[in-house]
Design a protein around this nucleic acid. Structure first.
Length: 276
DNA sequence: AACGATCCCTGTTGGC
DNA sequence: TGCCAACAGGGATCGT
């Protein structure tokens, strides 16, 4: 699934390809994919003949700064993929947007389930979007645990659900939230406000290492539907997952069978002895 | 205000 | 073996 490590992997592939490049052609195959900007039909015009300044990321959102103060926002949803191809090269099924640069390269947006989107915003429009107010980036701006403590206080919601809340911290999805909770020894269904100071410290401390491990292995590819690197390779963190998708299998730490329960409508995987 | 449920979408999976 | 319902999930939105 595209969560922070997957989106950051995509960003690192896109940055050298796009930064300084000029966009020379834009094709939109599936109109649903361009949404959230006030007039979606402006999408092509806003990209065309514009140069890319920098490829950024906040949580799971790619935020690409263009010359002329426009921001090209891309969210991969759950099945969105970016592919870098030579012009005229093969197009996977569900290729909904193709952007060509003056470097003889195409950026393909492929998304079978169309939960992903892209759009180009002026600064005013951007500010009016919900993603302009995301929580701190889980990799680059994670607050120290002393600053997280008051944000948990009195919260009855399951800690797992809070970790998935992009306005609390931006970047964790269902897989990495479960992995972070396993690493910190906390049950996913614990009410957020009941965590001890030490537990919050553990939780805070687990986020960076888990995300960096995912990043180091190119992210998690469950299958070729959900996520692949822009060059088509699979992310290799899947084999290293401690709990996600491993119901009934032995915990890699102590051998206890991994449990699956539904929390906040999301399947959650955890070890009943490691996590308290 | 906080939290849970529902919806969007389609390829894959599991049960009969 | 074949069919079809259930499932997967990020985020917006709605209802309680």
């Amino acid at each position: 699934m595209p969560e922070l490590p997957e989106v950051e992997t995509v960003r690192r592939s896109l940055a050298p390809a796009l930064e300084g490049a000029m966009i020379v052609a834009v094709e939109v195959g599936h109109p649903r994919v361009v949404r959230r900007q006030p007039r979606p039909r402006d999408f092509q015009d806003r990209l065309l003949r514009r140069r890319v300044a920098s490829v950024g990321r906040h949580g799971k959102f790619l935020m690409i700064d263009l010359e002329g103060d426009f921001t090209w926002v891309i969210h991969l949803g759950m099945s969105g993929r970016i592919r870098l191809e030579a012009p005229g090269g093969e197009r996977s099924p569900h290729t909904h947007v193709v952007v060509e640069t003056d470097r003889h390269q195409e950026v393909h947006f492929v998304d079978p389930r169309t939960f992903g989107f892209m759009a180009v915003f002026t600064p005013d429009e951007f500010e009016g979007q919900s993603f302009a107010h995301l929580g701190p980036d889980a990799l680059n701006a994670l607050p120290r645990f002393r600053r997280l403590l008051p944000r948990l206080e009195g919260r009855a919601v399951a800690i797992k659900s809070l970790l998935l809340d992009q306005y609390f911290v931006a970047g964790l999805g269902n897989i990495y939230a479960d992995e972070v909770l396993h690493r910190s020894g906390i049950r996913p269904d614990r009410a957020a406000g009941t965590l001890s100071v030490d537990e919050v410290r553990m939780l805070r401390g687990a986020i960076g290492p888990v995300l960096r491990a995912g990043l180091r292995w190119g992210g998690t590819s469950l299958n070729d539907l959900t996520y692949l690197l822009p060059d088509g390779r699979a992310g290799e963190y899947f084999q290293r997952l401690q709990v996600y998708g491993r119901a009934g299998e032995p915990c890699r730490r102590d051998g206890t069978a991994i449990e699956r329960t539904v929390i906040g409508g999301r399947s959650s995987f955890w070890c009943p002895t490691c996590q308290r």
